[in-house]
Design a protein around this nucleic acid. Structure first.
Lengths: 220, 220
DNA sequence: CACCTCAGGAGAATGATGTTCCCGTTCACG
DNA sequence: CGTGAACGGGAACATCATTCTCCTGAGGTG
């Protein structure tokens, strides 16, 4: 609101001074934050869950609790940062992988497959971020989940729009359709099949794609 | 295996005696369990989350911690019981609501709508069971979630199969298709729209249905 | 009636975790 | 050099779930 310099002496120089003095601190802070983030990621990769304790992160990053809470609002913030990061990177990865494909629907298919794979609770490998934490977060902080989804949602929206333009799909609200495709891929990857008898209900990536294709292809 | 009465005296009478003596205890136990369950449900309804403490449940049900852990393996078991219950009741409810409908696809549409509604984080009303806890559980005990889903899955499988038989839908694996429809409805109901700008991405029940319809209608 | 058993009540003790606090040190900058 | 902010170390606290200990009362038994 009030951005007018009420000071009589133009504080340009001190502005710079402060900024210079600040920059160093900022840098250090970022570096520390980075260390925490790294440590946390390693722990997640190692343990396969987000159940690490703050202590572990602190020890692994060779910093202190004090410092941790000075840079993060709490464990929750840390996880959230990691989560958004992962989703962002995932979006990039999928984007580059789909780019070379010619047909829009093929791009979308690849995207669904990849998202499905990455959302699946991998045996050992990285990012149970999609799995573990995502679910919990959805229950407690839905808005932040939605925010974190934005990069992926943007990507899928593009893909859907392209498909619509090429006439391969139909959707008055591409973003909604994209949202549906994305969520279907992400969530169905996580629910395991019911162990009952011979018929497992764990749907495969292909099945998810077929389903989504129908959902996007069908005429309104 | 060995069901042969090795006892010289046929223990029929003592069998009865024991049984009679046991029944009372069983009854009492069931009653207590019921009280815990009720209290928990009230707390959930009141607080809108599953964040109540075991203490609260105990106090509200006017029983003791001792008793609680004598009847439940832990808070987790309690929640799970409530969860399965809720899903089962939901399945019943949807089943009766869809029964009168004539056309299979219409039945499926109604089912999707209802499931969506019930999965939505209601402002004040009951069963954030689908919401809150379901998500968390999905991260920690996926198998049990799958188990709890069975009743609903059965219902949706029936509906899909009917639609397939009537020629309104196509699916080589109705159960998988049903799983997809069900999960899509449940999950998309929980993710709120991203608050960014004017275009909310919160999909409506109708949109979910349209999507699922396409997924089930589209030819293989 | 005296006694015994056992479920159940009350609530203290434990253990794991996230979070805050305090003390002394380091480090960059003026 | 002096100063203040950031930091390391780690104790202290708070919240829960879960366990344990002690005790009571109701039923059944002799």
């Amino acid at each position: 609101m009030n951005a007018v310099p009420a000071e009589p002496t133009p504080p340009v120089w001190r502005q710079r001074a402060i900024e210079r003095s600040t920059r160093a601190a900022t840098l250090r802070a970022e570096q520390r934050i980075e260390r925490f983030l790294e440590a946390a990621q390693e722990l997640i990769a190692a343990k396969g869950t987000t159940d690490f304790t703050v202590q572990e992160v602190v020890e692994r990053s060779k910093q202190s609790l004090r410092s941790f809470y000075q840079h993060f609002d709490g464990k929750h913030e840390l996880l959230l940062a990691l989560f958004e990061d992962a989703l962002g990177r995932s979006a990039d990865e999928i984007r580059t992988a789909t780019a070379p494909k010619k047909k829009p629907l093929e791009r979308l298919r690849v995207a669904v497959h990849m998202l499905y794979e990455q959302s699946m609770p991998r045996p050992g490998r990285q990012s149970p971020l999609f799995t573990d934490f995502a679910m919990q977060l959805l229950g407690t902080h839905p808005e932040q989940v939605a925010t974190a989804h934005v990069p992926l949602l943007d990507l899928f929206t593009e893909l859907v729009e392209e498909a619509v333009e090429s006439g391969d799909a139909h959707a008055d609200k591409p973003r909604r359709a994209a949202s549906l495709v994305m969520q279907t891929a992400m969530f169905t990857a996580q629910t395991p099949g019911v162990p009952s008898g011979s018929t497992s209900t764990q749907v495969s990536a292909d099945e998810v794609w077929e389903f989504c294709r129908g959902g996007v292809t069908g005429r309104t």
